[in-house]
């Protein structure tokens, strides 16, 4: 740790000032609209109104649920995939990582449309299911929560995998063998060694995936077929159809709070593990 405060501030402040001026201040002004009453005072009535509406409650819970499921599933798959990739020869590793990153290079709009082809009545998934005898008639997968889940997972899984790869790579090489030698089973190895040592990656990846799922617009709009409203689609409606900027800023604020909460929660989970390790 270097102690020179002036030097530290000189390094850190440009970024902070930039983010504050270009981003934070305008957004805060906009968000404050949600807390104003018509006479110019402060109120939270817009929020109590929002949560007293049963549609809003449903949409809020659905958004939270889908975000959480996508995050958890991508963390599980992400660890498996990141482990597999890290164990590869360097040359193969580069290529596979490239393939994982590849979907990020494709416009989310085009990717979402591709799912319409894959998940449709005559799509590959239904053809495979029917050929394998899993189902007789084509399943209706499109335009449901399942479709949104699949779309979001494909959209954000790469972010989780890359975050975890870089975390796993920075883990001391002998940590796992050492734990194994000391008699830990694979579950213990993961829970007590890998997770604490890769928490930074998990927190980054988890926050990216969760926040991404909350704020994705195109995927729920297209794959949900507007039958399955999410907070972001609801907000877009408020802006572009009703021109109701107050309602939109209320939803925006709720989404922001949810993201912050997820970030803090993930950090908690990760540090709690860490403490256990340092005590044991």
């Amino acid at each position: 740790m270097f102690q020179n405060r002036a030097e530290a501030l000189a390094l850190a402040l440009p970024a902070a000032i930039f983010a504050a001026a270009v981003f934070l201040v305008p957004v805060i002004i906009l968000l404050s609209d949600g807390f104003r009453d018509p006479v110019g005072g402060w109120t939270i009535s817009a929020y109590t109104d929002f949560f007293s509406n049963s549609l809003n409650q449903t949409v809020f819970l659905r958004t939270l649920r889908l975000g959480a499921i996508v995050t958890v599933v991508s963390a599980v798959i992400g660890y498996a995939a990141a482990f597999a990739i890290v164990s590869l020869e360097p040359a193969t590793k580069g290529k596979i990582t490239g393939l994982v990153v590849l979907p990020l290079m494709i416009s989310p709009v085009a990717r979402t449309y591709a799912w319409i082809v894959i998940l449709g009545r005559t799509g590959i998934v239904n053809q495979a299911f029917q050929a394998l005898g899993i189902t007789d008639a084509p399943l209706r997968i499109l335009f449901s929560e399942t479709a949104i889940f699949i779309g979001l997972l494909q959209l954000f899984l790469p972010l989780m995998i890359i975050s975890l790869i870089s975390a796993l790579e920075n883990m001391p090489k002998d940590a796992i063998p050492a734990a194994r030698v000391l008699g830990a089973n694979w579950f213990q190895v993961f829970w007590k060694v890998v997770l604490p040592l890769t928490k930074e990656g998990l927190v980054i990846g988890g926050t990216l995936v969760f926040t991404g799922s909350l704020t994705a617009y195109i995927t729920p709009a297209i794959l949900g077929g507007s039958k399955v409203l999410m907070l972001e689609t609801l907000m877009y409606q408020q802006v572009s159809v009703s021109g109701n900027f107050v309602a939109a800023s209320v939803i925006a604020f709720i989404l922001i709070v949810m993201s912050f909460a997820a970030n803090i929660l993930l950090k908690r989970v990760a540090t709690a593990r860490n403490k256990v390790r340092s005590q044991g």
Partner: peptide, 22 residues
């Protein structure tokens, strides 16, 4: 609403859905 396939936002999507017999 449970029967209707989708409530579309972009009409350009419909050609695709019609083609797929969705």
């Amino acid at each position: 609403k449970d029967d209707i396939v989708t409530f579309y936002e972009k009409s350009s999507q419909l050609v695709q859905l019609m083609k797929q017999e969705e």
